[in-house]
Design a protein around this nucleic acid. Sequence first.
DNA 1: TGTGTTCTCGTAAACGTTTACGGAAAAACG
DNA 2: CGTTTTTCCGTAAACGTTTACGAGAACACA
Lengths: 341, 341
Amino acid sequence: MASTIHDLARHLNISIGTVSRALNGRADVNADTRQRVLDAAKKLNYSPNQSGRSLRQGATHSIAFMLQPHPGDQQYGEPFFIPFLIGLQAKLAEHGLDLMVVMGEPGQYQQERLRRVVETRLVDAVVLANTRRADDRIDYLSKAGFPFATLGRSQSGDDTYPSLDIDFERAGDEAVDRLVARGHRRIAAIRPSNDLNFGYLFLDGYRKALRRHGIEVDPALIADGFINEAGGYEVTPRVMRSQDPPTAIIFNNDAMALGGCKALAEMGIKPGHDMAVIVIVDTPLCRYFSPALTAFRPALEPMGRRLAEMLLASLPAFAGPEGTRIIREVWPLELVARDSD
Amino acid sequence: MASTIHDLARHLNISIGTVSRALNGRADVNADTRQRVLDAAKKLNYSPNQSGRSLRQGATHSIAFMLQPHPGDQQYGEPFFIPFLIGLQAKLAEHGLDLMVVMGEPGQYQQERLRRVVETRLVDAVVLANTRRADDRIDYLSKAGFPFATLGRSQSGDDTYPSLDIDFERAGDEAVDRLVARGHRRIAAIRPSNDLNFGYLFLDGYRKALRRHGIEVDPALIADGFINEAGGYEVTPRVMRSQDPPTAIIFNNDAMALGGCKALAEMGIKPGHDMAVIVIVDTPLCRYFSPALTAFRPALEPMGRRLAEMLLASLPAFAGPEGTRIIREVWPLELVARDSD
DNA sequence: TGTGTTCTCGTAAACGTTTACGGAAAAACG
DNA sequence: CGTTTTTCCGTAAACGTTTACGAGAACACA
C-alpha cells in the first residue's frame, strides 16, 4: 500500500536521488523527468514517510501545544482554548506543520511531559499556555535552547521568545472606568492567586484606574481564589463581608464569576440589579448565564493565527530574508455589554 | 545537548547494539553493563530520538484525534470533546503513546487531512469523532487497512473497528418517558439533519417510546436544522406553528436548544413554565442557562479512557495474549434533572 | 578432555529520506 | 574542432534507532 521513494525509482528505472530531487522541486532535474516522477508518484499513491524525512532533516514539522487545564476545570472544558487552537492550527497548516496537543491531567504540573517532548525531539517547537508569573517551563525551554512561544506573558520581560497576550491590565482599567462612570465607587476585584500572571496584570490595571479616579484601593475588596467555580463561590462572600460592601465586582475569570454569582444569589443579591458584575474573559458561558454577563472578549481565533506567525518568524527554518525575529504583542479586548452591570 | 546512543557507546566504550539492548531491557545483556548504561544515560541526559525510533520500528507511538468542529460551532468551542480528550490522552499516555489533535477548519470536510495523516505515516492509528451516517472517512480507513476507532457509530454495523457511542436511542426513549409521565402528549423533537448518525438514533428512540405510550408520531413535531444555535433558532418556530402545538420539546444538541429557547422567548414562551425542555447532550452551557436545562449527561472522561483501551486492544502491537479484539460499546447517559421540564 | 549450552556482546544491515559530490553528456563558445 | 560551461543524474553517506546473526568466553556435563 505505502510506496516509497525506492518503488518510484524502480518503477521509472532511475535513481532514488533523482526521484527525491524531482519531488522536492530542486532545479537540477530535467523538466520531463520531473513530470514523469510526479505522474508516477500519483499513480503509485506515494507520500513521503514522515519518520524518514524527520530523521534526515532533523525536523519533525510539528508543533506541540501544551494544554494544562486548571485544577477542577475539567467540567468547563477550557472553552477558551478551542478557538485559539483552531486559529493556531490553521496558520501552521499553511506552512505544512502539524499540531500536537499535549494535555496533562488537570492540576498536575507538566514539566515532565514537556521534558520528554523536547528531549525526544517529538516536535520542532512548543506553544505554552496558562503561563505563570514565574514559569519553570519557560526557564527550562530557554535553558535548553528549544524554540517556543507563549500565550500569555511571564514575569521576566526578557525578549528571547515570542509571546502573545491579552491586555488584562487595560481590561481591568476599562472595567473600572465603566463602573465608575455608572456611579460605582466601591468596586471589588476577584481573581486567581498571584502566580497566574494575568491575575497580577489585571489587578495592576484595576488599581491604576481606581487611583486615577481618586478612589482609594481597599484591600478588603480584593480577593484571591482557586480559578474555578468553587473558588469564586468561596471567595465572593469574603468581599461582601467588608465594612462597606461593594456595589460592583469585577471577576477575572468566567468560572469564578459563575461561582461568585451563585454565592450572591444565596445572599439574595441579584447581579444586574443589586450588584454590577463584569467578567474578564468572556466565554459562551457568560453569554448564556442569566443575567447575561457583561464581559471583555478576546479575538481568540485571530490570536491563534498570529501567535503561529510569530513563532514561525522566530524559527530559522521559516524566518523570512530579514532573519529571525522575536515579537511580543499584547492584544486589546473588546467589551461586550450585556445585562449584569 | 541532545546525546545519542552513539555518545553513550563511546563514553562507555561499548557498542551501540549493547547500549540499545540495555536501554530496552532485553535479556541478553549483563546486569552490570545494563546498570552502567542506565547511569550513563542519566548522566548524559539521553533520550531516544523519536524519528529514529519510529523509522526503524515502523511505528510512531502516537495517535491522531480528528477533531472536526461543526459549521458555525466555533463559538461553542466544542466543550463536549475536551473531557473526552483528557481521558483519551491519559490512557494513551499510560502506554507511552502521544496524542495528536488534527483540527480542520470548521465545516470543511477533512478527508484530505486524513489522507495525509495516514499516508504519511504520521501516526499509528486514528480516532474519529462526529461520525456521520455514511462516513467516507470510515470507508477510506477500512479500505486502507489503517487502524482506527470511532466515537460514535456509523450506519454500517460492521464489526471491523472499535467504536464507542452514547446511547442516543435510549436517551430519546427515556426523555419521552419522563415527559409522558409528567403529563405531556404533544412532544416535539428537534435535531440535526439525518446524516449525523446520532440524530438518527435519537429519533428512533423518540419514536419507539411514543408508540409504546400509544401516542401517534406527528411529523409536524419533528424538525431538522443546522447543529448550532442558529439552527435551533430557525427551526423551533416551525414545530410551534403546528396545528396542535407541543407542550414539550426534546433538543438533540445543546447549541440547538439554546437557539430554540431564544426563539421561544421571543414568542413569549418560558421554558420550565409554558414549555418543558430536555436536551441531549448535556454541557456546562445547559447548567448555567436560565432556566437550567434538564439534560442527559455522558461520562465523557471515562469514555475517553475506554475508547483508548478499545483501540489499543485492536492494535496487534498492544493486544494482550488473547490477540486482537474488536469491541463495540454503547454507554448510557445519566439524566440531570434541572428546571426546564 | 571434548562437546554442548549459556551468557554476553559486537557487527552490520535496515527503516525512508535528503543531499554533497562528482562525472558524463550536452550545449555554448571561441 | 577544442575548450569551457551547463545540464542532468547516479553514488553513497548520513540521520538515530533496533535487531538478526554470529562469535567468543565461560560454564556444565559426560
